[in-house]
Simulated scan of single mutants.
Amino acid sequence: MTGSVDFRGVEQAYDTVAEAYADHFPDTSAEHSLDLAMVDAFAAAVIAAGDPRILDAGCGAGRLSRYLTGRGCLVEGVDLSPGMIARARRESPELAFSVASLTDLPFPGGTFPGVMLWYSIIHTPPAGQDRIFAEAARVLRPGGHLLVGFQHGRGSRDVGEIYRGMGYDVDLRRYNYTADEVAGRAGTAGLREVARMVRQARPEERDGQSSMLFRAPA
């Protein structure tokens, strides 16, 4: 497992833009139907195993938490940004949300039948990825499922420019990964790939998108 990563800049950036981000993405209407098909398959796999509890790790303002709840799951969300968690609690007071880092999840091992990292690995450089997947695998119960969504490709982008253009003084970098890279990280954490979806970018997207489903050993 590689060294620690300083996430203070990411936390500050999302605290700054939390309200604007949540207003712009209030639900899953921005998701492609193929993306949501993977979320639906994940939810169905967790429910079919007999325990519908899911950890939405990096939940933001909770839009996917609400979507999964609507699919019959019992969802708990964590996010690094207190601003995002505050908005999630206002939007969905019936759900449990707390502030936590993906690299230090506040749960005992084997707690959840399902864990979702929906575009929440994207602000972590390669040096921090193994720790994220190790934590996700740790809190998964045997036979549990992990869903990961991310921008597909290589290199990184300064996405802070989008928010600076809206008048917010933030620095925020996004890292792209290939599906094979993510599969390798998950495999190192002891997880087996079940399915992957890789699609080309839509006109409004800069990069292609991927989502991958993994399973922990039974």
Results as ranks from 00 to 15, higher is better:
115 V>S: 01
115 V>G: 01
115 V>Y: 06
116 M>L: 15
116 M>W: 09
116 M>E: 14
116 M>P: 06
116 M>G: 13
117 L>M: 06
118 W>D: 15
118 W>V: 08
118 W>E: 09
118 W>I: 07
118 W>P: 10
118 W>Y: 14
119 Y>L: 09
119 Y>G: 13
119 Y>H: 12
119 Y>E: 12
119 Y>A: 14
119 Y>N: 10
120 S>Y: 05
120 S>T: 07
121 I>K: 00
121 I>S: 10
122 I>T: 11
122 I>S: 12
122 I>F: 10
123 H>G: 06
123 H>L: 04
123 H>A: 09
123 H>V: 05
123 H>N: 11
123 H>R: 02
124 T>R: 01
124 T>Y: 12
125 P>M: 10
126 P>R: 12
126 P>D: 15
127 A>C: 04
127 A>H: 01
127 A>M: 02
127 A>K: 05
127 A>D: 14
128 G>H: 04
128 G>Q: 07
128 G>K: 00
128 G>E: 06
128 G>M: 08
129 Q>K: 08
129 Q>M: 14
129 Q>T: 03
129 Q>F: 03
129 Q>N: 07
129 Q>C: 08
130 D>A: 15
130 D>Y: 01
130 D>I: 00
130 D>Q: 13
130 D>M: 12
131 R>F: 08
131 R>C: 12
131 R>Q: 15
132 I>A: 11
132 I>Q: 11
132 I>T: 08
133 F>Q: 03
133 F>N: 08
133 F>E: 06
133 F>V: 05
134 A>D: 15
134 A>M: 05
135 E>L: 01
135 E>M: 00
135 E>P: 02
135 E>C: 02
136 A>C: 09
136 A>I: 04
136 A>S: 09
137 A>M: 05
137 A>C: 09
137 A>N: 08
137 A>Q: 06
138 R>M: 12
138 R>F: 11
139 V>K: 02
139 V>Q: 07
139 V>M: 05
139 V>Y: 05
140 L>Q: 02
140 L>K: 00
140 L>C: 03
140 L>P: 04
141 R>N: 12
141 R>E: 15
141 R>S: 15
141 R>L: 14
141 R>M: 15
141 R>D: 14
141 R>H: 07
142 P>S: 07
142 P>A: 06
142 P>W: 01
142 P>T: 06
143 G>C: 07
143 G>P: 02
143 G>H: 03
143 G>M: 04
144 G>R: 00
144 G>D: 10
144 G>Q: 02
144 G>F: 01
145 H>S: 15
145 H>R: 12
146 L>W: 00
146 L>C: 03
146 L>Q: 03
146 L>I: 03
147 L>E: 08
147 L>D: 06
147 L>H: 03
147 L>V: 10
148 V>E: 11
148 V>G: 12
148 V>N: 10
148 V>P: 11
148 V>T: 12
149 G>R: 01
149 G>D: 13
149 G>P: 11
149 G>F: 01
149 G>K: 01
150 F>D: 13
150 F>R: 00
150 F>K: 03
150 F>Y: 14
150 F>Q: 00
150 F>M: 07
151 Q>D: 15
152 H>C: 12
152 H>T: 09
152 H>W: 10
152 H>D: 15
153 G>I: 03
153 G>L: 10
153 G>E: 13
153 G>M: 09
153 G>P: 07
153 G>V: 05
154 R>P: 02
154 R>F: 13
154 R>G: 15
154 R>I: 13
154 R>H: 14
155 G>Y: 01
155 G>T: 00
